[in-house]
Protein backbone atom coordinates (compact mmCIF):
# COMPACT_ATOMS: atom_id res chain seq x y z
CA UNK A 1 0.00 0.00 0.00
CA UNK A 2 2.93 2.29 0.66
CA UNK A 3 3.94 2.61 -3.02
CA UNK A 4 5.66 5.79 -4.12
CA UNK A 5 3.54 7.92 -6.45
CA UNK A 6 5.84 10.86 -6.99
CA UNK A 7 9.53 11.24 -6.46
CA UNK A 8 11.67 14.36 -6.91
CA UNK A 9 15.43 13.79 -7.07
CA UNK A 10 17.73 16.76 -6.71
CA UNK A 11 15.52 19.17 -8.64
CA UNK A 12 16.94 22.64 -9.27
CA UNK A 13 15.62 25.43 -11.43
CA UNK A 14 16.69 28.94 -12.34
CA UNK A 15 14.87 31.76 -14.07
CA UNK A 16 17.03 33.23 -16.81
CA UNK A 17 15.17 36.43 -17.41
CA UNK A 18 16.32 39.14 -16.89
CA UNK A 19 19.31 37.70 -14.98
CA UNK A 20 20.12 34.18 -13.89
CA UNK A 21 18.20 33.69 -10.66
CA UNK A 22 18.02 30.34 -8.93
CA UNK A 23 14.54 29.55 -7.59
CA UNK A 24 14.75 25.88 -6.61
CA UNK A 25 17.75 24.34 -4.87
CA UNK A 26 18.37 20.58 -4.93
CA UNK A 27 14.90 19.54 -3.91
CA UNK A 28 14.37 15.86 -3.15
CA UNK A 29 11.34 14.23 -1.57
CA UNK A 30 8.77 11.57 -2.31
CA UNK A 31 5.04 11.22 -1.95
CA UNK A 32 3.46 7.89 -1.15
CA UNK A 33 0.09 6.64 -2.26
CA UNK A 34 -2.81 8.05 -0.28
CA UNK A 35 -0.87 10.92 1.29
CA UNK A 36 -2.59 14.28 1.63
CA UNK A 37 0.31 16.67 1.46
CA UNK A 38 0.46 20.43 1.43
CA UNK A 39 3.35 22.62 0.38
CA UNK A 40 3.55 25.87 2.31
CA UNK A 41 5.89 28.78 2.36
CA UNK A 42 5.98 32.53 1.90
CA UNK A 43 5.19 34.25 -1.37
CA UNK A 44 8.08 33.82 -3.82
CA UNK A 45 9.65 30.88 -2.04
CA UNK A 46 9.22 28.78 -5.17
CA UNK A 47 6.37 26.51 -4.06
CA UNK A 48 4.23 27.13 -7.15
CA UNK A 49 7.28 26.84 -9.38
CA UNK A 50 8.01 23.49 -7.79
CA UNK A 51 4.42 22.36 -8.35
CA UNK A 52 4.57 23.16 -12.07
CA UNK A 53 7.84 21.26 -12.36
CA UNK A 54 6.21 18.30 -10.59
CA UNK A 55 3.17 18.65 -12.86
CA UNK A 56 5.39 18.03 -15.94
CA UNK A 57 4.14 21.25 -17.53
CA UNK A 58 7.42 23.02 -16.79
CA UNK A 59 10.28 21.04 -18.29
CA UNK A 60 13.02 23.60 -17.79
CA UNK A 61 14.80 22.15 -14.70
CA UNK A 62 17.70 19.91 -13.69
CA UNK A 63 17.43 16.75 -11.64
CA UNK A 64 14.99 13.89 -12.08
CA UNK A 65 11.26 13.52 -11.64
CA UNK A 66 9.51 10.15 -11.33
CA UNK A 67 5.75 9.66 -11.42
CA UNK A 68 4.51 6.13 -10.67
CA UNK A 69 8.10 4.94 -10.94
CA UNK A 70 8.47 6.30 -14.48
CA UNK A 71 11.12 8.89 -15.31
CA UNK A 72 9.43 12.06 -16.61
CA UNK A 73 12.57 14.08 -17.28
CA UNK A 74 13.40 14.38 -20.98
CA UNK A 75 10.11 12.96 -22.29
CA UNK A 76 8.46 14.50 -25.36
CA UNK A 77 5.68 17.07 -25.20
CA UNK A 78 3.23 14.47 -26.47
CA UNK A 79 4.23 11.80 -23.96
CA UNK A 80 4.03 14.29 -21.08
CA UNK A 81 0.59 15.46 -22.23
CA UNK A 82 -0.55 11.85 -22.14
CA UNK A 83 0.81 11.36 -18.62
CA UNK A 84 -0.87 14.55 -17.39
CA UNK A 85 -4.07 13.32 -18.97
CA UNK A 86 -3.93 9.90 -17.36
CA UNK A 87 -2.10 10.31 -14.07
CA UNK A 88 -2.46 13.88 -12.87
CA UNK A 89 -5.54 15.89 -11.98
CA UNK A 90 -5.28 19.66 -11.62
CA UNK A 91 -7.13 22.19 -9.53
CA UNK A 92 -6.00 25.77 -10.04
CA UNK A 93 -6.56 28.96 -8.10
CA UNK A 94 -8.64 30.41 -10.90
CA UNK A 95 -11.07 27.82 -11.89
CA UNK A 96 -10.21 27.55 -15.56
CA UNK A 97 -13.29 25.85 -16.81
CA UNK A 98 -13.93 26.06 -20.55
CA UNK A 99 -16.78 28.54 -20.87
CA UNK A 100 -17.79 27.17 -24.26
CA UNK A 101 -18.90 23.89 -22.69
CA UNK A 102 -21.42 22.69 -20.12
CA UNK A 103 -20.27 21.72 -16.63
CA UNK A 104 -20.70 18.03 -17.48
CA UNK A 105 -18.69 18.36 -20.68
CA UNK A 106 -15.92 20.16 -18.79
CA UNK A 107 -15.68 17.23 -16.43
CA UNK A 108 -15.76 14.73 -19.28
CA UNK A 109 -13.15 16.37 -21.53
CA UNK A 110 -9.99 14.76 -20.06
CA UNK A 111 -11.64 11.34 -20.20
CA UNK A 112 -12.78 11.89 -23.77
CA UNK A 113 -9.20 12.80 -24.57
CA UNK A 114 -7.92 9.64 -22.86
CA UNK A 115 -10.44 7.66 -24.92
CA UNK A 116 -10.31 4.60 -22.69
CA UNK A 117 -14.05 4.32 -22.05
CA UNK A 118 -17.11 4.89 -24.19
CA UNK A 119 -18.82 8.24 -24.06
CA UNK A 120 -21.73 6.67 -22.18
CA UNK A 121 -19.47 5.26 -19.47
CA UNK A 122 -17.66 8.57 -19.18
CA UNK A 123 -20.94 10.45 -18.83
CA UNK A 124 -22.08 8.10 -16.06
CA UNK A 125 -18.77 8.41 -14.28
CA UNK A 126 -18.79 12.20 -14.53
CA UNK A 127 -22.34 12.31 -13.15
CA UNK A 128 -21.27 10.07 -10.27
CA UNK A 129 -18.46 12.42 -9.33
CA UNK A 130 -20.73 15.43 -9.60
CA UNK A 131 -23.17 13.67 -7.27
CA UNK A 132 -20.38 12.82 -4.84
CA UNK A 133 -19.43 16.49 -4.77
CA UNK A 134 -23.06 17.54 -4.44
CA UNK A 135 -23.30 19.53 -7.65
CA UNK A 136 -25.14 17.13 -9.95
CA UNK A 137 -27.90 19.70 -10.54
CA UNK A 138 -25.35 21.98 -12.27
CA UNK A 139 -24.41 19.37 -14.86
CA UNK A 140 -26.16 20.98 -17.81
CA UNK A 141 -25.42 24.60 -17.00
CA UNK A 142 -22.80 26.48 -18.94
CA UNK A 143 -19.49 26.72 -17.12
CA UNK A 144 -19.74 30.50 -16.83
CA UNK A 145 -23.18 30.34 -15.19
CA UNK A 146 -22.04 28.74 -11.92
CA UNK A 147 -20.51 30.42 -8.85
CA UNK A 148 -16.84 30.44 -7.85
CA UNK A 149 -17.14 27.75 -5.16
CA UNK A 150 -19.17 25.57 -7.48
CA UNK A 151 -16.65 26.06 -10.28
CA UNK A 152 -13.88 24.86 -8.02
CA UNK A 153 -15.83 21.71 -7.23
CA UNK A 154 -16.43 21.18 -10.95
CA UNK A 155 -12.67 21.53 -11.43
CA UNK A 156 -12.13 18.89 -8.74
CA UNK A 157 -14.57 16.56 -10.50
CA UNK A 158 -12.66 17.15 -13.74
CA UNK A 159 -9.38 16.38 -11.96
CA UNK A 160 -10.86 13.08 -10.76
CA UNK A 161 -12.43 11.82 -13.97
CA UNK A 162 -9.45 9.71 -15.12
CA UNK A 163 -8.77 8.21 -11.65
CA UNK A 164 -5.43 10.01 -11.48
CA UNK A 165 -2.48 8.79 -9.44
CA UNK A 166 -2.22 12.23 -7.88
CA UNK A 167 -4.22 15.45 -7.70
CA UNK A 168 -2.23 18.67 -7.70
CA UNK A 169 -3.66 21.94 -6.55
CA UNK A 170 -2.19 25.43 -6.88
CA UNK A 171 -3.84 27.56 -4.18
CA UNK A 172 -7.22 25.93 -4.82
CA UNK A 173 -8.84 27.93 -2.01
CA UNK A 174 -6.87 31.11 -2.65
CA UNK A 175 -9.70 32.83 -4.45
CA UNK A 176 -12.61 31.57 -2.35
CA UNK A 177 -14.43 32.88 0.73
CA UNK A 178 -14.23 31.03 4.01
CA UNK A 179 -17.34 28.95 3.51
CA UNK A 180 -16.35 27.75 0.06
CA UNK A 181 -12.76 27.18 1.19
CA UNK A 182 -14.15 24.91 3.86
CA UNK A 183 -16.22 22.98 1.33
CA UNK A 184 -13.24 22.52 -0.98
CA UNK A 185 -11.02 21.44 1.89
CA UNK A 186 -13.65 18.98 3.13
CA UNK A 187 -13.90 17.61 -0.38
CA UNK A 188 -10.16 16.97 -0.46
CA UNK A 189 -10.32 15.46 2.99
CA UNK A 190 -13.14 13.16 1.88
CA UNK A 191 -11.21 12.08 -1.23
CA UNK A 192 -8.17 11.32 0.88
CA UNK A 193 -10.08 9.32 3.47
CA UNK A 194 -12.77 7.60 1.43
CA UNK A 195 -10.93 7.01 -1.81
CA UNK A 196 -7.34 6.93 -0.57
CA UNK A 197 -6.60 9.64 -3.16
CA UNK A 198 -3.11 11.11 -3.20
CA UNK A 199 -3.16 14.90 -3.04
CA UNK A 200 -0.45 17.53 -3.31
CA UNK A 201 -1.71 21.03 -2.60
CA UNK A 202 0.24 24.28 -2.70
CA UNK A 203 -1.20 26.81 -0.27
CA UNK A 204 -0.26 29.75 1.90
CA UNK A 205 -3.31 29.14 4.10
CA UNK A 206 -1.79 27.72 7.30
CA UNK A 207 -5.22 26.61 8.63
CA UNK A 208 -5.63 24.55 5.51
CA UNK A 209 -2.12 23.14 5.74
CA UNK A 210 -2.30 22.26 9.40
CA UNK A 211 -5.27 20.02 8.73
CA UNK A 212 -3.40 17.93 6.14
CA UNK A 213 -1.51 14.78 7.01
CA UNK A 214 1.84 16.01 5.83
CA UNK A 215 3.32 19.47 5.34
CA UNK A 216 6.29 20.31 3.16
CA UNK A 217 7.63 23.71 4.17
CA UNK A 218 9.71 25.74 1.77
CA UNK A 219 11.86 28.80 2.13
CA UNK A 220 13.97 30.51 -0.53
CA UNK A 221 13.77 27.59 -2.92
CA UNK A 222 14.71 24.95 -0.36
CA UNK A 223 12.63 22.39 1.46
CA UNK A 224 13.21 23.13 5.13
CA UNK A 225 10.98 20.44 6.60
CA UNK A 226 8.99 17.51 5.30
Amino acid sequence: MESIILQAKDISKSFRDPVLMPVLHHISFEIKKGEFTSIIGKSGCGKSTLLYVLSTMDTDYTGELYIGGQLMTGKSDKALAHIRNEKIGFVFQFHYLLNEFSVLKNVMLPALRLNKYTEKEITEKAMRWLENLGIEDLAHKKANQVSGGQKQRVAIARALINDPAIIMGDEPTGNLDKKNSRIVFDTFQQLSEEFNQTLLIVTHDTDFASSTKRIIEMEDGRVISH
Partner: peptide, 14 residues
Amino acid sequence: TIAILKATGFAGAD
Protein backbone atom coordinates in the same frame (compact mmCIF):
# COMPACT_ATOMS: atom_id res chain seq x y z
CA THR B 1 -8.75 27.55 -22.93
CA ILE B 2 -5.54 26.50 -24.67
CA ALA B 3 -3.68 26.43 -21.35
CA ILE B 4 -6.31 24.32 -19.63
CA LEU B 5 -6.54 21.93 -22.55
CA LYS B 6 -2.80 21.47 -22.36
CA ALA B 7 -2.82 21.09 -18.58
CA THR B 8 -5.48 18.40 -18.74
CA GLY B 9 -3.62 16.34 -21.28
CA PHE B 10 -4.04 17.78 -24.77
CA ALA B 11 -0.66 17.83 -26.51
CA GLY B 12 0.57 20.77 -28.60
CA ALA B 13 -0.23 18.74 -31.70
CA ASP B 14 -3.88 18.41 -30.59
